[in-house]
């Protein structure tokens, strides 16, 4: 190995090492802080402390953890499943069926990606209010179900789905919905796994819209609760960090369980 190659390799390692540290540091800091008292955290203490048990006890005393977790899980899982069903059907339809209107409708769908959520917030809130859905979980799920990005992702991935499989299934006697159910879904399972991870994370971490719509403590999700702890008059950062860890765990779990298929699915969509 000559000097310039050695230098290049070293530079690559330095860059990747820095990037890895910047990515992992907030997690490390979160875990360390959860063992310290609020005053130590504000004081800049970076060592592991002895207040972990106290922080956990305080968190459980202040928050109805089972209810909050149930709200978040129910919302994230249901919204994710609905999004994936609706968006994969749309992606499949856009790719498989030819019509003159197809590309125009698809362009319209993609255009919705350009509209920031902030511009939709008030009209959406008014729609929900008129429908009597304020402070319900349905109001959180409805706007997320038809996701332009996930429709785009499924359509791109469907390009890799052999059309001859669809023809073979037709000759075998399958109707379109059966082709979708028995052939398309199993063949595209990596795509579904990747979409599940992305949509689940988005829904689990969803903050702004639930903040506007959910008004009673009974309906609130973990992100709202952690945020309200952090914005208290005297926030207890040790307790906030316990909440943050608990809020992070499900997304980490989903990612690690589906990591292999997530990578395959993401590769498939850009091939």
């Amino acid at each position: 190995m000559n000097v310039s190659r050695l230098a290049t390799t070293a530079l690559q390692y330095v860059f990747l090492g820095t990037a890895a540290f910047l990515s992992i540091f907030p997690f490390i800091w979160m875990v360390i802080s959860s063992t310290n008292r609020s005053i130590d955290i504000i004081g800049g203490r970076t060592g592991i402390g002895d207040a972990f048990g106290t922080n956990v006890a305080n968190f459980f005393a202040q928050v109805d953890v089972p209810l909050v977790f149930w709200n978040s899980t129910k919302l994230a899982v249901l919204a994710t499943l609905l999004t994936i069903v609706v968006s994969s059907l749309a992606g499949y339809g856009f790719e498989m069926f030819r019509s003159k209107a197809r590309d125009r409708i698809y362009a319209l769908v993609l255009l919705t990606l350009m509209v920031p959520f902030a511009a939709l917030m008030i009209p959406l809130f008014m729609m929900m209010a008129r429908s009597g859905l304020i402070n319900t979980h349905i109001a959180i799920m409805l706007p997320t179900i038809a996701s332009a990005f996930i429709i785009f992702y499924f359509r791109q991935s469907t390009k890799a789905f052999q059309t001859e499989l669809r023809d073979a299934a037709k000759v075998d006697g399958l109707k379109e919905w059966q082709i979708f159910l028995y052939i398309y879904i199993p063949v595209m399972r990596s795509t579904y796994a990747a979409a599940f991870v992305i949509v689940f994370m988005t829904n689990w971490n969803n903050y702004l819209w639930p903040l506007i719509v959910l008004q009673s403590n009974e309906t609130k999700t973990i992100t709202l609760v952690v945020s309200s702890l952090a914005s208290a008059y005297y926030p207890d950062y040790g307790v906030v960090m316990i909440g943050t860890i608990l809020a992070t765990l499900p997304t980490l779990l989903v990612f690690f369980v589906m990591q292999r298929q997530f990578v395959q699915g993401m590769l498939g969509s850009v091939k």
Binding site: Q162, E164, L165, A168, D172, G173
Partner: peptide
């Protein structure tokens, strides 16, 4: 309907269902 025409088709790309075994592929219809 294609399945009721009394035909069977062999495709250029084989069009075997990748998630099924050979036995399942052959017996699927």
């Amino acid at each position: 309907d294609p399945s009721k025409r009394g035909i069977a088709m062999v495709f250029q790309s084989y069009a075997l269902y990748p998630h099924m075994t050979v036995r399942e592929n052959m017996g699927f219809a």
